[in-house]
Amino acid sequence: MDTHFLDSFVTVADCGSIAEAARRMNLTPAAVAQRLRAIERELGQTLVTRSGRNIQVTPAGLAVLDAARALVSGARDLRAIAAQGVPAGKLRLGATATALTGLLPGIIAALRGRHPEVEYFVRPGASVDLYHLALSGELDAALIVRPHFAIPKSVGWTVLRREPLVCIAPADSPDDDPHLLLQRLPFIRYDRNQWGGKIVDDYLRDHDLTVREVLELDALDAIAAMVHRGLGASILPDWAPPWPEGLRLRKTVLHDSPQREIGILWRRSGARLAAVEALVQVATSAFAGRPVTASGSASATGRSAESPPRG
């Protein structure tokens, strides 16, 4: 039985959608559906049924789901176990949207140069979701925002980047104090349900700033694009470049602000521990302790930004 096909079944069951499972596995929906049919023929049972655009796992599928999950996990561990302490096997990583573009490519490129036997599966998501997936063992490591509560000792944590808050406004805004701009212009809020959004909310509260909120979004690049279009102002962490191309923003560092800490969270045990530790070592060497200047470049640091911000 092909464990890749079993993995497709498990992923479809977890996602509730063939399209979403295909996106996560970097396959076409047709390829995922073909794998499902092959597993069903081999087992002689229907494992999933369609309900509109969603997928429902049948009683037969539920009966074998835990065993299928264990087989997939065991097969994934075999390569790492056979390597006898040498970094190898397939790492399951999570990353927030900004870490996915600003940090993870450099980390994987460096790790691949040192340890070509390591393979990767990357799952994007919000910090809170990736945190719980790492704790449950579904992910080996995750690049996330530091939570506002104590991290269990069963996992490791190291900070890779500290990001100050910046006030962003349309490029043609008056060169006023950022607090005046925030109170004068409509406010586009970074989602308070996100850990980074909570930092922004705390800043507004600590400085007794009353804003006229018109939107609340969880995508930082979308907020920056809204501001570029003249729809309002916002406070965002100065995330790792790249920022979207073509934006014209007035960007001011809030020097008295708390910082959003981006770090790597990893499991301290498991068959792929050697590969995980190699990943952490590479990430720490590349980013930890590096001073973070506002914007990460000279193109839009604490002044009116007529050119696209790069950080």
Rank of each mutant, 00 (worst) to 15 (best):
R272P: 05
V159M: 08
G196I: 01
L165Y: 03
L93G: 10
R112D: 11
D172Q: 12
L265G: 08
A219H: 15
P116M: 01
V86Y: 10
P105A: 06
F121W: 13
P178K: 04
R92H: 15
E119F: 08
A294L: 00
Q281G: 13
C15V: 00
R310C: 14
P116H: 04
A271D: 09
A150C: 05
A38K: 08
E261T: 02
D177M: 13
K251T: 15
V292T: 13
A171L: 08
V145E: 15
G85H: 04
Q84D: 14
R114S: 14
V10H: 04
S136T: 13
G74N: 12
N26I: 04
S51P: 06
L220R: 05
W157F: 14
A294F: 02
A68E: 02
G197M: 03
E245L: 05
P170E: 01
H132T: 13
I235R: 11
G246S: 02
V159D: 12
N26G: 10
A88S: 13
G302L: 01
E277N: 12
R290E: 14
I39W: 01
A240F: 10
A126G: 13
P178T: 08
E216G: 10
E277H: 08
P174Y: 02
A300I: 07
V118F: 05
G89A: 02
V282M: 03
Y190F: 14
L135I: 12
Y190A: 06
D66W: 00
R114K: 14
A70L: 09
P124M: 03
G137Y: 11
W239D: 14
G296F: 07
T210D: 12
L103F: 13
Q45L: 12
A275H: 06
G197C: 03
P308A: 14
S51G: 11
N193P: 00
Q45I: 01
A305H: 09
H4R: 15
A19C: 00
R184Y: 11
A305S: 15
L185G: 09
R123P: 03
S136C: 11
V72P: 09
A31M: 00
D238F: 02
A38R: 11
S307Y: 10
H115V: 00
W157K: 10
W243T: 07
T101A: 15
D218K: 07
R50I: 01
